[in-house]
Protein backbone atom coordinates (compact mmCIF):
# COMPACT_ATOMS: atom_id res chain seq x y z
CA UNK A 1 0.00 0.00 0.00
CA UNK A 2 1.44 3.31 -1.06
CA UNK A 3 0.02 6.59 0.02
CA UNK A 4 0.92 9.85 -1.59
CA UNK A 5 -0.42 12.45 0.73
CA UNK A 6 0.69 15.49 -1.20
CA UNK A 7 -0.37 15.36 -4.80
CA UNK A 8 1.38 18.63 -5.49
CA UNK A 9 4.63 16.67 -5.62
CA UNK A 10 5.82 15.30 -8.87
CA UNK A 11 4.38 11.88 -8.88
CA UNK A 12 7.36 9.61 -8.93
CA UNK A 13 5.49 6.76 -10.50
CA UNK A 14 4.64 8.73 -13.60
CA UNK A 15 0.97 7.95 -13.45
CA UNK A 16 -1.41 7.48 -10.66
CA UNK A 17 -4.37 5.49 -9.71
CA UNK A 18 -6.80 6.36 -6.98
CA UNK A 19 -9.40 4.34 -5.29
CA UNK A 20 -12.17 5.96 -3.30
CA UNK A 21 -13.50 2.55 -2.66
CA UNK A 22 -13.11 -0.87 -4.15
CA UNK A 23 -15.78 -0.49 -6.77
CA UNK A 24 -15.30 3.02 -7.99
CA UNK A 25 -11.89 3.84 -9.27
CA UNK A 26 -10.85 7.08 -10.82
CA UNK A 27 -7.51 8.40 -11.81
CA UNK A 28 -6.19 11.60 -10.40
CA UNK A 29 -4.75 14.19 -12.67
CA UNK A 30 -1.45 15.36 -11.33
CA UNK A 31 -0.88 19.04 -11.86
CA UNK A 32 2.82 18.82 -12.57
CA UNK A 33 3.04 15.60 -14.49
CA UNK A 34 0.24 14.91 -16.91
CA UNK A 35 -0.72 11.30 -16.50
CA UNK A 36 -3.05 8.99 -18.25
CA UNK A 37 -6.09 7.71 -16.59
CA UNK A 38 -6.68 4.04 -16.31
CA UNK A 39 -8.65 1.76 -14.08
CA UNK A 40 -6.83 -0.03 -11.30
CA UNK A 41 -7.59 -3.37 -12.89
CA UNK A 42 -5.24 -2.42 -15.70
CA UNK A 43 -2.36 -2.06 -13.30
CA UNK A 44 0.20 -4.83 -13.95
CA UNK A 45 3.34 -3.85 -12.04
CA UNK A 46 3.73 -1.52 -9.13
CA UNK A 47 7.33 -0.91 -8.10
CA UNK A 48 7.90 1.07 -4.93
CA UNK A 49 11.37 2.18 -3.88
CA UNK A 50 12.81 -0.80 -5.69
CA UNK A 51 16.58 -1.20 -5.36
CA UNK A 52 18.70 -4.06 -6.68
CA UNK A 53 21.95 -5.02 -5.01
CA UNK A 54 24.80 -7.26 -6.10
CA UNK A 55 26.34 -8.17 -2.78
CA UNK A 56 27.02 -4.87 -1.03
CA UNK A 57 26.92 -2.95 -4.27
CA UNK A 58 23.69 -1.15 -5.08
CA UNK A 59 23.23 -1.36 -8.85
CA UNK A 60 19.94 0.56 -9.08
CA UNK A 61 18.10 2.56 -6.49
CA UNK A 62 14.66 3.91 -5.75
CA UNK A 63 12.69 2.79 -8.76
CA UNK A 64 9.04 3.78 -8.60
CA UNK A 65 6.93 2.74 -11.55
CA UNK A 66 3.36 1.76 -12.35
CA UNK A 67 2.99 -0.28 -15.49
CA UNK A 68 -0.21 -0.49 -17.43
CA UNK A 69 -1.68 -3.51 -19.10
CA UNK A 70 -1.38 -3.96 -22.88
CA UNK A 71 0.99 -1.12 -23.30
CA UNK A 72 4.60 -0.96 -24.32
CA UNK A 73 6.83 0.55 -21.68
CA UNK A 74 10.36 1.40 -22.70
CA UNK A 75 13.34 1.59 -20.35
CA UNK A 76 16.11 3.80 -21.73
CA UNK A 77 19.30 5.31 -20.45
CA UNK A 78 23.07 5.22 -20.77
CA UNK A 79 24.93 1.96 -20.29
CA UNK A 80 25.44 0.99 -16.68
CA UNK A 81 22.24 2.70 -15.58
CA UNK A 82 20.72 -0.59 -14.48
CA UNK A 83 17.80 -0.70 -16.90
CA UNK A 84 18.42 -4.37 -17.72
CA UNK A 85 18.83 -5.12 -14.03
CA UNK A 86 15.44 -3.59 -13.33
CA UNK A 87 13.86 -5.48 -16.21
CA UNK A 88 15.28 -8.76 -14.91
CA UNK A 89 13.91 -8.10 -11.46
CA UNK A 90 10.40 -8.06 -12.98
CA UNK A 91 10.43 -11.82 -13.59
CA UNK A 92 13.03 -12.67 -10.98
CA UNK A 93 15.75 -13.56 -13.49
CA UNK A 94 18.11 -11.81 -11.10
CA UNK A 95 17.58 -14.73 -8.73
CA UNK A 96 20.00 -16.66 -10.95
CA UNK A 97 22.84 -14.44 -9.77
CA UNK A 98 23.71 -15.74 -6.32
CA UNK A 99 24.62 -12.35 -4.82
CA UNK A 100 21.70 -10.39 -6.26
CA UNK A 101 18.93 -9.21 -3.96
CA UNK A 102 16.06 -6.76 -4.14
CA UNK A 103 14.82 -4.16 -1.69
CA UNK A 104 11.53 -2.29 -1.79
CA UNK A 105 8.37 -3.83 -3.12
CA UNK A 106 7.36 -5.03 -6.53
CA UNK A 107 3.72 -5.94 -6.93
CA UNK A 108 2.49 -7.94 -9.87
CA UNK A 109 -1.29 -7.59 -10.10
CA UNK A 110 -1.25 -6.87 -6.41
CA UNK A 111 0.94 -9.82 -5.40
CA UNK A 112 4.39 -9.15 -4.01
CA UNK A 113 6.72 -10.91 -6.44
CA UNK A 114 9.39 -11.21 -3.78
CA UNK A 115 7.10 -12.77 -1.20
CA UNK A 116 8.92 -15.80 0.13
CA UNK A 117 6.06 -18.08 -0.89
CA UNK A 118 6.35 -17.07 -4.54
CA UNK A 119 8.07 -19.55 -6.85
CA UNK A 120 10.17 -17.76 -9.49
CA UNK A 121 9.41 -20.56 -11.95
CA UNK A 122 5.72 -19.74 -11.73
CA UNK A 123 6.48 -16.04 -12.17
CA UNK A 124 8.53 -16.66 -15.31
CA UNK A 125 5.76 -18.72 -16.85
CA UNK A 126 3.48 -15.69 -16.59
CA UNK A 127 6.13 -13.11 -17.36
CA UNK A 128 8.18 -14.27 -20.33
CA UNK A 129 11.52 -12.94 -21.46
CA UNK A 130 13.31 -12.26 -24.74
CA UNK A 131 17.05 -11.70 -24.56
CA UNK A 132 19.55 -9.36 -26.10
CA UNK A 133 21.28 -11.96 -28.24
CA UNK A 134 19.00 -14.45 -29.95
CA UNK A 135 19.49 -17.64 -27.98
CA UNK A 136 17.74 -20.50 -29.73
CA UNK A 137 18.29 -23.87 -28.09
CA UNK A 138 20.33 -26.31 -30.20
CA UNK A 139 17.13 -28.18 -31.02
CA UNK A 140 14.59 -28.13 -33.83
CA UNK A 141 12.40 -25.09 -34.42
CA UNK A 142 9.42 -27.08 -33.20
CA UNK A 143 11.16 -28.18 -30.00
CA UNK A 144 12.27 -24.62 -29.32
CA UNK A 145 8.73 -23.30 -29.38
CA UNK A 146 7.29 -26.30 -27.56
CA UNK A 147 9.93 -26.04 -24.83
CA UNK A 148 7.96 -23.84 -22.44
CA UNK A 149 4.71 -25.82 -22.61
CA UNK A 150 6.64 -29.05 -22.26
CA UNK A 151 8.48 -28.06 -19.10
CA UNK A 152 5.11 -26.90 -17.78
CA UNK A 153 3.95 -30.48 -18.20
CA UNK A 154 1.85 -30.06 -21.32
CA UNK A 155 1.90 -33.05 -23.65
CA UNK A 156 -1.20 -32.74 -25.86
CA UNK A 157 -2.02 -30.10 -28.43
CA UNK A 158 1.58 -28.99 -28.79
CA UNK A 159 1.19 -28.78 -32.56
CA UNK A 160 -1.50 -26.14 -32.16
CA UNK A 161 0.51 -24.19 -29.61
CA UNK A 162 3.57 -24.18 -31.88
CA UNK A 163 1.57 -23.06 -34.90
CA UNK A 164 -0.29 -20.40 -32.95
CA UNK A 165 2.89 -19.02 -31.37
CA UNK A 166 4.85 -18.97 -34.62
CA UNK A 167 1.96 -17.18 -36.31
CA UNK A 168 1.85 -14.63 -33.53
CA UNK A 169 5.58 -14.10 -33.94
CA UNK A 170 5.12 -13.63 -37.71
CA UNK A 171 7.41 -16.57 -38.39
CA UNK A 172 4.97 -19.31 -39.38
CA UNK A 173 5.05 -18.73 -43.13
CA UNK A 174 8.82 -18.81 -43.22
CA UNK A 175 9.31 -21.97 -41.23
CA UNK A 176 6.16 -24.06 -41.50
CA UNK A 177 7.84 -26.45 -43.94
CA UNK A 178 10.95 -26.97 -41.86
CA UNK A 179 9.77 -27.21 -38.31
CA UNK A 180 12.01 -30.17 -37.61
CA UNK A 181 15.17 -28.44 -38.78
CA UNK A 182 17.64 -27.04 -36.30
CA UNK A 183 17.00 -23.51 -35.15
CA UNK A 184 20.71 -22.75 -35.23
CA UNK A 185 20.69 -22.35 -39.02
CA UNK A 186 18.16 -19.47 -39.03
CA UNK A 187 19.06 -15.85 -39.59
CA UNK A 188 19.50 -13.54 -36.60
CA UNK A 189 16.15 -11.84 -37.13
CA UNK A 190 14.39 -15.18 -37.48
CA UNK A 191 16.09 -16.46 -34.36
CA UNK A 192 14.90 -13.47 -32.40
CA UNK A 193 11.33 -13.93 -33.63
CA UNK A 194 11.69 -17.57 -32.67
CA UNK A 195 12.68 -16.43 -29.18
CA UNK A 196 9.51 -14.35 -29.10
CA UNK A 197 7.45 -17.31 -30.29
CA UNK A 198 9.11 -19.43 -27.60
CA UNK A 199 8.13 -16.88 -24.97
CA UNK A 200 4.56 -16.61 -26.29
CA UNK A 201 4.11 -20.38 -26.27
CA UNK A 202 4.10 -20.41 -22.46
CA UNK A 203 1.01 -18.18 -22.66
CA UNK A 204 2.40 -15.33 -20.58
CA UNK A 205 0.68 -12.07 -19.75
CA UNK A 206 3.81 -9.96 -19.88
CA UNK A 207 6.80 -10.02 -22.23
CA UNK A 208 10.09 -8.57 -21.04
CA UNK A 209 12.46 -7.72 -23.87
CA UNK A 210 16.06 -6.95 -23.08
CA UNK A 211 17.46 -4.98 -26.03
CA UNK A 212 15.88 -7.46 -28.44
CA UNK A 213 17.16 -5.71 -31.56
CA UNK A 214 20.69 -4.80 -30.57
CA UNK A 215 22.18 -7.72 -32.45
CA UNK A 216 20.01 -7.29 -35.54
CA UNK A 217 20.25 -5.38 -38.79
CA UNK A 218 17.80 -2.50 -39.51
CA UNK A 219 15.41 -4.59 -41.61
CA UNK A 220 15.16 -7.32 -39.00
CA UNK A 221 14.77 -4.60 -36.37
CA UNK A 222 11.86 -3.06 -38.25
CA UNK A 223 10.13 -6.42 -38.39
CA UNK A 224 10.50 -6.92 -34.65
CA UNK A 225 9.14 -3.44 -34.01
CA UNK A 226 6.14 -4.16 -36.24
CA UNK A 227 5.62 -7.36 -34.38
CA UNK A 228 5.70 -5.61 -31.02
CA UNK A 229 2.96 -3.23 -32.16
CA UNK A 230 0.80 -6.25 -33.01
CA UNK A 231 1.61 -8.11 -29.81
CA UNK A 232 0.57 -5.11 -27.77
CA UNK A 233 -3.07 -6.02 -28.31
CA UNK A 234 -2.61 -9.08 -26.20
CA UNK A 235 0.46 -8.63 -24.04
CA UNK A 236 1.94 -6.09 -21.72
CA UNK A 237 5.44 -5.42 -23.01
CA UNK A 238 8.46 -3.96 -21.26
CA UNK A 239 11.42 -3.26 -23.46
CA UNK A 240 14.92 -2.18 -22.59
CA UNK A 241 16.61 -0.39 -25.45
CA UNK A 242 19.70 1.69 -25.96
CA UNK A 243 18.09 3.11 -29.06
CA UNK A 244 16.07 6.24 -28.27
CA UNK A 245 14.41 6.33 -31.68
CA UNK A 246 13.18 2.80 -31.09
CA UNK A 247 11.73 3.76 -27.74
CA UNK A 248 10.05 6.77 -29.33
CA UNK A 249 8.65 4.65 -32.16
CA UNK A 250 7.24 1.72 -30.28
CA UNK A 251 6.50 2.63 -26.71
CA UNK A 252 3.54 4.24 -25.01
CA UNK A 253 5.45 5.16 -21.92
CA UNK A 254 9.13 5.63 -21.32
CA UNK A 255 11.30 5.50 -18.24
CA UNK A 256 14.62 7.28 -18.38
CA UNK A 257 17.35 5.90 -16.14
CA UNK A 258 20.55 7.70 -15.38
CA UNK A 259 23.69 6.78 -13.58
CA UNK A 260 25.49 8.47 -10.74
CA UNK A 261 29.13 7.76 -10.03
CA UNK A 262 30.44 7.65 -6.50
CA UNK A 263 33.71 9.56 -6.72
CA UNK A 264 35.44 7.70 -3.89
CA UNK A 265 34.64 4.12 -4.83
CA UNK A 266 34.10 4.70 -8.57
CA UNK A 267 30.95 2.65 -8.31
CA UNK A 268 28.05 3.38 -10.59
CA UNK A 269 24.53 3.28 -9.32
CA UNK A 270 21.56 3.61 -11.62
CA UNK A 271 18.42 5.54 -10.77
CA UNK A 272 15.08 6.30 -12.37
CA UNK A 273 15.06 9.96 -13.38
CA UNK A 274 11.81 10.38 -15.19
CA UNK A 275 8.91 8.18 -16.14
CA UNK A 276 6.05 9.48 -18.18
CA UNK A 277 4.31 8.98 -21.48
CA UNK A 278 6.68 8.69 -24.37
CA UNK A 279 5.50 11.70 -26.28
CA UNK A 280 6.01 13.99 -23.33
CA UNK A 281 9.36 12.49 -22.37
CA UNK A 282 10.78 13.06 -25.79
CA UNK A 283 9.20 16.47 -26.49
CA UNK A 284 9.02 18.18 -23.15
CA UNK A 285 10.87 16.36 -20.38
CA UNK A 286 10.65 17.70 -16.86
CA UNK A 287 14.14 16.78 -15.84
CA UNK A 288 17.23 18.45 -17.20
CA UNK A 289 19.15 15.15 -17.25
CA UNK A 290 16.49 13.63 -19.47
CA UNK A 291 16.68 16.55 -21.81
CA UNK A 292 20.45 16.35 -21.97
CA UNK A 293 20.29 12.69 -22.76
CA UNK A 294 17.64 12.80 -25.47
CA UNK A 295 19.25 15.77 -27.16
CA UNK A 296 22.54 13.92 -27.23
CA UNK A 297 24.43 16.13 -24.80
CA UNK A 298 25.08 13.24 -22.50
CA UNK A 299 25.53 9.48 -22.71
Amino acid sequence: MVNLTDAEDVNPKGLSVSAENDADITVEQNTDTPVDEFPAEDLVFDASDLSVYYGDFRAVRDVNMLIKRKEITALIGPSGCGKSTVLRSFNRMNDLIPTARVEGTLLYRGVDLYDERVDPVEVRRRIGMVFQKPNPFPKSIYDNVAYGPRVAGRKKGLDDVVEHSLKKAALWDEVKDRLQESAIGMSGGQQQRLSIARAIASDPEVLLMDEPCSALDPIATARIEELMAELKDEYTILIVTHNMQQAARVSDRTAFFSVEVDETSDRRTGLLVEYTNTEKLFSNPDDERTENYITGRFG
Binding site: L4, S18, E20, A40, L43, G110, D115, D119
Partner: peptide, 30 residues
Protein backbone atom coordinates in the same frame (compact mmCIF):
# COMPACT_ATOMS: atom_id res chain seq x y z
CA UNK B 1 -6.37 16.55 -2.40
CA UNK B 2 -7.52 13.21 -1.31
CA UNK B 3 -5.17 10.33 -0.67
CA UNK B 4 -4.16 8.47 -3.72
CA UNK B 5 -4.00 4.88 -2.80
CA UNK B 6 -2.90 2.01 -4.90
CA UNK B 7 -5.28 -0.89 -4.78
CA UNK B 8 -3.99 -3.76 -2.74
CA UNK B 9 -4.47 -7.41 -3.48
CA UNK B 10 -8.17 -7.42 -2.79
CA UNK B 11 -8.90 -4.39 -4.92
CA UNK B 12 -6.77 -5.41 -7.85
CA UNK B 13 -8.99 -8.28 -8.76
CA UNK B 14 -11.62 -6.26 -10.56
CA UNK B 15 -12.53 -7.53 -14.01
CA UNK B 16 -9.78 -10.13 -14.27
CA UNK B 17 -8.97 -13.41 -12.65
CA UNK B 18 -7.87 -12.62 -9.16
CA UNK B 19 -4.18 -13.24 -8.64
CA UNK B 20 -3.04 -14.42 -5.25
CA UNK B 21 0.27 -15.35 -3.72
CA UNK B 22 -0.88 -18.95 -3.77
CA UNK B 23 -1.27 -18.84 -7.53
CA UNK B 24 2.37 -17.82 -7.83
CA UNK B 25 3.57 -20.31 -5.26
CA UNK B 26 3.65 -23.16 -7.73
CA UNK B 27 2.57 -26.71 -6.96
CA UNK B 28 3.97 -28.17 -3.75
CA UNK B 29 4.82 -31.37 -5.59
CA UNK B 30 7.18 -29.55 -7.94
Amino acid sequence: MADISIPSTSAGAVGRDPLTVDALAGPRKR
